[in-house]
Write a protein that binds this DNA or RNA. Sequence first.
DNA 1: AAACTTGTGGAACAATCGTTCAACTAGTTT
DNA 2: AAACTAGTTGAACGATTGTTCCACAAGTTT
Lengths: 193, 193
Amino acid sequence: MTQPRKADGRKARGEKKRRAIVEATLRVIERDGISGVTHRSVAREAGVPTTAPTYYFATLDDLLIATLLWTAEAVCDDMLRIVASGGTAREIAEVIARSVDENRGRTLAEYELYLLAGRRPELRAAARRWLDLAVETVRPADPVAFRALLAAVDGLLIQGLIADVAPNGDELEPIVSFLIRGRDEFPAAPREQ
Amino acid sequence: MTQPRKADGRKARGEKKRRAIVEATLRVIERDGISGVTHRSVAREAGVPTTAPTYYFATLDDLLIATLLWTAEAVCDDMLRIVASGGTAREIAEVIARSVDENRGRTLAEYELYLLAGRRPELRAAARRWLDLAVETVRPADPVAFRALLAAVDGLLIQGLIADVAPNGDELEPIVSFLIRGRDEFPAAPREQ
DNA sequence: AAACTTGTGGAACAATCGTTCAACTAGTTT
DNA sequence: AAACTAGTTGAACGATTGTTCCACAAGTTT
């Protein structure tokens, strides 16, 4: 047979380990920031030998890039879920509140990677994928208002990260409501004419 | 005499050098990011011996903290100047456009320090001083709308940093206008009753 | 001028870093 | 089973790091 005898062959395990290393990297960034990412710290976090990250990623930079790409995907998934479930002001406010409280570390990591994209042109498309995806998915009737909303979400998140006490959904909801302007969900676009 | 003989005495020069080191640190962050900040890189940039930064700042961390505090002050000054000069949508849009184009490096540095504050509670007050100052200065009639504006400014800046081509004032102005809602300047607060 | 404080800067320390290397195991193909 | 390939690992490399130390120069006070 040319098929692998074991379902969990060499290749599959390799791919799994690769992802485990990326996940460990994200955890390190959540805990210590990008500056805390070293081959050794990632290896320790992932429970693999020191040389494993080097084996799977040519350089430390490649590892960070892979982590950003993976994180960007996750952000897009989250965003799509919000839109799919209606995208009311209340919901958006709650997501922001959770992002700066329970998921604070994760959000900090996301923004550190976001800024990394500011210095690496090849990462920018991935970093702003959620923005493009939001526009494509919602097809807003008022693009200007929608862009204002997307910008404000970023601002509320980053400002929430440096607040003494994280804002809760009740405080955030009026602001989001103001941005959605009377409607209680994303303004849907007119169908293609 | 107990007065120093020279106007430019030891203490004055020390203070000057201290500030030169902080300024050099900011330049390093603009160029290479926070991860590029080392005693040696800062010393090289400032044109002082390797041990000078250590002499003036107990630790590398202290140096970063001093740099953030200094930068935060500069941001506040900029913000006050915008408000003083009217704060029209056009003006705000232009400032954002310049921040992500000519002053791109500086803006990147500011946000890296911003995020640093997310991990250091003692820095948060300084990092969000411009926000508090904006509210105090403008005394907005509609606080919710104003907070939305401030959040959107942050978002437009950070999104501008990861754009393939930096947005210009013409593209940004409609968004800022939308946030100011018909008025062409910050809504002034009613005088104290 | 003597005593002091502050600033200056080279040498050197241990620690940690990214990365390379070579030996090795385990899975896959022929 | 022999040949091959992908994955695994510890040891070790040179480079760089933050920081300390100490001898000394400059400025200030008594």
